[in-house]
Design a protein around this nucleic acid. Structure first.
Length: 461
RNA sequence: GUGCCUAUGGUAUAAUGGUUAUUACGUCGGUUUGUGGAACCGACAAUACGGGUUCAAUUCCCGUUGGGCACCCCA
């Protein structure tokens, strides 16, 4: 066998696996299985039709919201220059330091699979000169992100996010609008969530707060857990996340960032809250909420799933304002605000919630089943199926089945109200049998009149 | 990245250091292609991979890989 150059690399691995498989099959005396079998990579997954049904509902909800609130959909590449995220998300964050899929492209460029999309959207805004359009520019996206994390339920290495971003306005009304949209997304699904929010102010204020926090914790060093001691030097704001009992007490009397905000920042935040009150969107202030990515300023928020299902992955979506991001990645100063929703988690939480409350998730609905008998009938039925499509009737059929019994069974499983039966006799007479599956009553109808009759029976206008 | 738990047909499960690995769902089919819902019958299909202990391993031990939980972090 001639092996091409580019195949050389994979050759040994294949050989090894083939030999081990071969041993197995010889022992069992069964048909030889020579090819390697593949499965999905760790943290990746196939979403099969049965589950995808739920996903498409989410897509529709997002699409409708975008249309209503006039966000334009943006598609950015999955592959970006790695430094885009290093500069925006921030060195020192786990997302950048430990979790990026980063590699050298063939020309030596350091590229990565996007770990999030806000920075990429901002990059697109800058590189396409969108500041020349009417401001603010409202964009939304739907796509996969990649982080090399350790997989858990609701956490994958390739995961889906829907995001909405409003660029070019610092107005607190924008923050409120976005929180409202995110909130609507969940409520359109019938999934109750709670919003938590906080303000991080501007970097100088955050810095001052950080110092105070460190001072405070230094004094209590002997009362806190090991993790927190490490956080104290590495990432002080994370001290606020600790769930350890001993630390909770210390946390309770810790300084709160809100007290370190200047008048302008405070005012901005108050405005956001006022707007949310007007919108009657419930929220909880959470002074321990500190978003992980460096680019956040002012408002930050997170959405949590229904109570009781408090897993570690209960944050279903999050976002905030990022007024300094544009400059960080080399653009001219452009305020922005946005959020992204983790669809893998939303689907998970949604399904759980719905089944717990015995609510129905969307199903593929079939209205008619077409059964055929014999070659001639198959042709007529095939034609019939295609014609019915024009009238918007959802038709099920399986022409690879020969027996009527089995086709009836399939129709029964599909829970259709009517079955059309075409056999030799009907072909001759140019008729079709319509069987009412509930009553079992059958009528013979002229083929030409089937469509109109079905429309009437199914209540189509 | 750290710690703990786990792995049996496509799915959910039973069992065992020793003949042919249980059951249900599923899929395919059932008295030569004309009728579904109940019931019945048959077929398909599994001990993740690699090593060790043993006369004998699906079972015990180790490693790898996958999955789960908690931490870290995050959506």
């Amino acid at each position: 066998m001639v092996v091409k150059k580019n195949a050389v690399k994979s050759k040994p691995a294949i050989k090894k696996i083939v030999s081990s498989k071969a041993k197995n099959t010889v022992v069992k005396g069964k048909v030889e299985k020579t090819a390697k079998t593949y499965s999905v990579l760790r943290g990746m997954r196939d979403i099969l039709p049965k589950e995808e049904r739920h996903w498409s509902k989410l897509y529709h909800v997002a699409e409708n919201l975008a249309e209503y609130f006039q966000f334009g959909r943006i598609e950015t590449p999955i592959l970006e220059e790695a430094s885009l995220f290093v500069r925006s998300v921030g060195k020192g964050t786990d997302v950048v330091d430990k979790e990026m899929y980063i590699f050298e492209d063939r020309d030596g460029t350091k590229v990565c699979l996007r770990p999030e999309n806000t920075a990429a959207v901002m990059r697109a805004y800058i590189s396409n000169g969108l500041w020349n359009q009417a401001q603010p520019v409202k964009l939304w996206y739907l796509g996969q992100m990649f982080r090399h994390d350790r997989p858990q339920a609701g956490r994958y290495r390739q995961f889906w996010q829907v995001g909405f971003e409003t660029l070019g306005s610092a107005d607190p009304a924008v923050d409120a609008e976005l929180i409202m949209i995110a909130h609507n997304f969940y409520s359109d699904l019938g999934l109750p969530v709670t919003a938590r929010l906080n303000s991080l102010g501007v970097p100088a204020e955050r810095e001052r707060y950080r110092n105070e926090l460190v001072n405070y914790y230094r004094g209590k060093r002997s009362y806190i857990c090991g993790d927190c001691k490490a956080r104290l030097t590495r990432n002080p704001l994370r001290l606020l996340d600790c769930k350890n009992k001993e630390c909770l007490e210390v946390k309770e009397t810790a300084p709160q960032i809100i007290d370190y905000l200047g008048a302008e920042s405070k005012n901005h935040f108050m405005k956001v809250l006022e707007y949310l009150d007007v919108l009657e969107i419930p929220y909880q202030l959470d002074h321990t909420l500190v978003r992980g990515l460096d680019y956040y300023t002012h408002t930050v928020f997170e959405f949590y799933g229904p109570e009781g299902e408090e897993g570690a992955q209960s944050a279903l979506g999050a976002g905030g304002r990022y007024d300094l991001l544009a400059e960080q990645i080399g653009g001219k100063a452009t305020p922005g605000c946005g959020f992204s929703l983790g669809l893998d988690r939303v689907v998970l939480a949604w399904r759980e919630y719905m089944s717990k409350n015995n609510q129905e998730l969307p199903k593929q609905k079939m209205e008619i089943y077409v059964a055929q008998l014999g070659e001639e009938a198959r042709r007529v039925a095939l034609r019939l199926v295609n014609d019915l499509r024009g009238s918007g009737i959802k038709v099920g059929f399986n022409f690879s089945k020969g027996s009527l019994k089995i086709q009836m069974e399939l129709a029964d499983h599909a829970q259709v109200p009517y079955v059309l039966i075409v056999g030799q006799k009907e072909v001759q007479d140019k008729t079709v049998i319509i069987r009412d599956m509930e009553s079992g009553i059958q009528e013979v109808v002229d083929q030409k009149k089937v469509e109109a009759l079905l429309k009437r029976k199914l209540g189509h206008s």
